[in-house]
């Protein structure tokens, strides 16, 4: 029977049909034992679940964000988003269950080497990742590169490994202030701090243009960069050919260091938005379910692309 649930609605896993939960659980179990096979299985499950309208995005939702895409391309991208999302979910579960070293085995070594080049600069760096592809691959990459980093996530349940400290943003403003302060200390000591640009928690930047909309990034990364003087390195991970995880990284963005605080942050946010827009225009397939939802809720379109 066809579900009446809109495919991208935030429906808790427990409310999904039992066979769906069983399929997702099986993917997680296989991924724990054989990561490469497990994520491919999850991808196949994603295609099937999208066909059954149980997971992913509707073509109309994709068209709303990318109005220039032909209908057939929007429909194909909607299916791909569902497949990628379950794949990312399986990958995240692998990390949550302590398999950070197994998760690292899926990273593309040439891409990792390119990231390493960017991270070689002396001093601290704010790694600003985006929810496209397996965002938790940032932890795995830093583990392989032997970096010391503070990883700031919505919840602090991500697997921890040597050199990596994970903190969650769950809590009040005082707790978030503690996280910000800790991040500034990490940066001043020449280490890295990882935060997501998109999301809904905590303080937001002033609106900046991205994909024909006015979006607000999470403000924490920009505050840390401003207070520590460390550059922001925007990046995201994507599923490449053969199930390998690739990384896309921008040029580092340095805080102006002088002038009004909000203006400094907005200038950096505008550069991040421009880079992200350029990436999505060049590679629409990198659009994820999470990023799609974030763009949808960031505000109405301000221009037709």
């Amino acid at each position: 029977m066809r579900s009446k649930i809109p495919v991208s609605a935030r429906v808790p896993m427990a409310a999904r049909p039992a066979w769906f939960r069983a399929a997702v659980g099986a993917c997680d179990a296989v991924t724990r034992r054989m990561p490469a096979t497990g994520v491919r299985l999850a991808e196949a499950a994603g295609w099937l679940c999208h066909a059954g309208r149980l997971w992913g995005a509707a073509p109309s939702e994709v068209s709303a964000v990318f109005p220039w895409l032909p209908d057939a391309a929007a429909a194909r991208l909607a299916r791909r988003i569902a497949a990628q999302d379950l794949k990312c979910r399986a990958y995240d579960r692998l990390l949550y269950s302590g398999g950070i070293e197994s998760a690292a085995s899926l990273l593309s070594r040439p891409h990792l080497a390119r990231l390493e080049q960017r991270l070689r600069e002396p001093g601290g760096q704010v790694l600003l990742d985006v929810h496209t592809g397996p965002i938790s691959a940032t932890s795995a990459a830093l583990l392989l590169l032997g970096k010391t980093a503070l990883i700031v996530r919505k919840s602090g349940r991500t697997a921890c490994a040597r050199g990596l400290e994970v903190v969650g943003l769950e809590g009040d403003d005082q707790h978030r202030a503690q996280v910000l302060r800790r991040g500034v200390e990490y940066l001043r000591r020449g280490n890295a701090v990882v935060l997501a640009a998109d999301g809904w928690e905590g303080a937001a930047t002033e609106p900046v243009a991205c994909c024909g909309r006015l979006v607000r990034f999470r403000r924490g990364a920009f505050v840390m960069a401003r207070l520590s003087g460390a550059p922001i390195l925007p990046l995201y991970f994507r599923w490449g050919d053969g199930g390998r995880i690739e990384v896309e990284a921008a040029e580092p963005i340095r805080p102006a260091g002088v002038g009004d605080a909000v203006r400094q942050e907005t200038e950096m946010a505008a550069v991040v938005a421009g880079w992200l827009e350029g990436q999505l225009l060049a590679r629409p397939d990198d659009l994820s379910l999470s990023l799609l939802k974030w763009l949808q809720t960031s505000g109405p379109p301000v221009a037709v692309l």
Binding site: R176, A177, R181, A261
Partner: peptide, 9 residues
Amino acid sequence: DSVAIVELL
């Protein structure tokens, strides 16, 4: 808020 608290410190 969290940002202002850190600015204060």
